[in-house]
Design a binder for these strands. Structure first.
Lengths: 340, 340
DNA sequence: CTGAAAGCGCTAACAA
DNA sequence: TTGTTAGCGCTTTCAG
């Protein structure tokens, strides 16, 4: 590793001057500047980011805490976030908690403020006061996908109107003429997907339909869980003509279950998801879903986090992304008359 | 941020002692140890990882360079790698190059050796000499998925026998009675998937079949490219009964194309992939593929990288993972007689 | 416009 | 067993 002072020696100046040249501080004569630049090139000098961070009192990394980067939604988010971070000269450390609060806590304790300047939290199953604690210790925190614009948390966040997303799905199904729904809600009743279901239910109610409470299943956010729940649901309620899933993974599972039951999507049963992950486009039939502005949310999250770090923004802020949009593909159609 | 010396002051000792206590160096009296520990707890002290890194002359982070974390294969790898890194007290910075060598180079120049102690390279389209350069600058590099155990590169690597993977797919198809193949090879002729195709072709040759060269397409590693290539291929060569794809994504695209042509997988045409990504299990029909030991490769990559960093291993080493395994699902079956 | 010097928070000899 | 003292490589006042 060539160091600043080696460059300085070669250029016949002091390291402070080299530093000034490199940081474009101006206040350096053109000739010295050139000499320094030559020395830098000749030695192949690269600034030592760790040393710089210590001296500046700020780290060049940001942490992204997710439950599992292997969940198909996160990579798209992470890609955009990393891109945005890089555009601002920052690097991204990914932290998988596997939904274990202890792991999340350990990550925060270790790196927040000591290795990373700030933290992005993506549904990582961490208690709010834990987050507030790390914020108070000086490392800004932003919640990347807050689901309820109506009830902002006491932490900075990027909110997506998932209530509306649910409602959009419902209105789409209603518009097609469906009347008998089943709902698959990812994660437990009070959990992160509850708002999507509420949006769905209230749009149904508005259209004069009673809530399909007895045809609702609270399940894990996986293909398998969607599959199993659909199997049960359709056995108990064969009159169902449309399935609302609060996320794409269970929706995909539902489609597989329906196929295995010898039924056809969308002829016999329509299925909708929320998010629009990559698989949604690839599956057969392609999944009709409500797309969430993932990239925008990622960029906004990074922007907000940086603003917080640089104290350009007051701490409790919420920024809302564009509204989710229906992506109509092949898994939904008008219900067909069936023997009842 | 509470610092070491604040803790020291409260405990009535010097910061060196606190450091010793925290690093379990022994050589500290039991009472002082307790006093120090109390002070640490009382102040909520957390070591400043950046400062520690600078003092120790080693960084706690490792860099994972991939072309895009959004490619469905990488997240599974990244998850396992991050897990392994964490088990060794290391953090993982993900770097997406978007297959742009300039971005990759920029990453290496910036963080290798200055922020990260070592680098994991995952098909990132970086020239070998670039990598050798960063290695020579003192930051070990490991290639995470070298495709040819026969021809080790001059850099440390974890090799997977993709030649055999291709052969396994071929033998499976051959065993089913197929004779007329088409092949979809991800990336250009000389590219990363060439070895898989060679394995496939040589297994065919061994079974007395001539290479299906005129029925081979070199395409991008995407669902869409697989779809388009299959459409063309089947129009030109309707007699094909099986498609070998060098990766799962094109295989999935092939299945969709076949369906859109009004044909059935596997009744009319069988399809095989390589890797066994998550989608392979979810697609309908579920994809028969040759599973690659992703987690093992990730763990081995981390282990090797750490060994290199700690100079426990000579630099040009290659370690080979377990052999890929056939995962027989629903996309392959015996060919059926068709009018010729 | 350039240099000298202090210090970021921690570790690691070496002394005491 | 504990303290003293140098740094790690860089940035940043503050003088010159």
């Amino acid at each position: 590793m060539t160091t600043l002072s080696e460059v300085a020696r070669l250029a016949g100046v002091t390291s402070a001057t080299v530093s000034n040249v490199l940081r474009q501080r101006g206040k350096v004569g053109e000739q010295t500047r050139q000499r320094v630049l030559d020395a830098v090139a000749q030695l192949g000098y690269r600034p030592h980011l760790t040393a710089r961070a210590l001296a500046e009192g700020r780290a060049p990394t940001l942490a992204l805490v997710v439950s599992s980067i292997a969940n198909p939604f996160y990579p798209e988010f992470a890609l955009a976030a990393e891109r945005a971070a890089r555009d601002h000269g920052r690097f991204l450390i990914v932290c998988n908690t596997n939904d274990d609060p202890d792991i999340g806590r350990a990550y925060l304790d270790q790196i927040a403020g000591t290795l990373s300047d700030g933290v992005l939290i993506m549904n990582a199953n961490l208690p709010m006061d834990e987050l507030r604690k790390t914020e108070q210790r000086g490392a800004p925190v932003v919640l990347c996908m807050w689901e309820k614009p109506d009830a902002p948390p006491e932490l900075p966040c990027i909110a997506v109107d998932f209530h509306e997303a649910g409602a959009i799905a419902a209105r789409h199904l209603l518009g097609l003429g469906h009347q008998c729904f089943a709902a698959l809600v990812g994660s437990k009743k009070s959990g992160i997907h509850a708002e999507r279901y509420r949006g769905f239910a209230s749009a149904c109610a508005q259209a004069g339909h009673k809530h399909p409470l007895q045809r609702t299943r609270y399940i894990n956010d996986t293909v398998e869980a969607g599959y199993r729940a659909t199997m049960e649901l359709l056995k108990e309620h064969p009159q169902v003509t449309a399935i609302f899933a609060s996320n794409d993974l269970p929706a995909l599972g539902a489609m597989n279950a329906i196929a295995d039951l010898g039924l056809n999507v969308p002829r016999d049963i329509s299925v909708t998801g929320i998010t629009d992950i990559q698989w949604a486009r690839v599956s057969r039939p392609a999944l009709t879903t409500v797309a969430v502005p993932t990239e925008e949310a990622a960029r906004m999250s990074i922007d907000l986090l940086l603003a917080l770090i640089e104290r350009r923004s007051p701490s409790p802020v919420m920024r809302v992304t564009a509204t989710p949009q229906l992506v109509e593909r092949a898994s939904t159609a008008a219900p067909r008359k069936r023997k009842g």
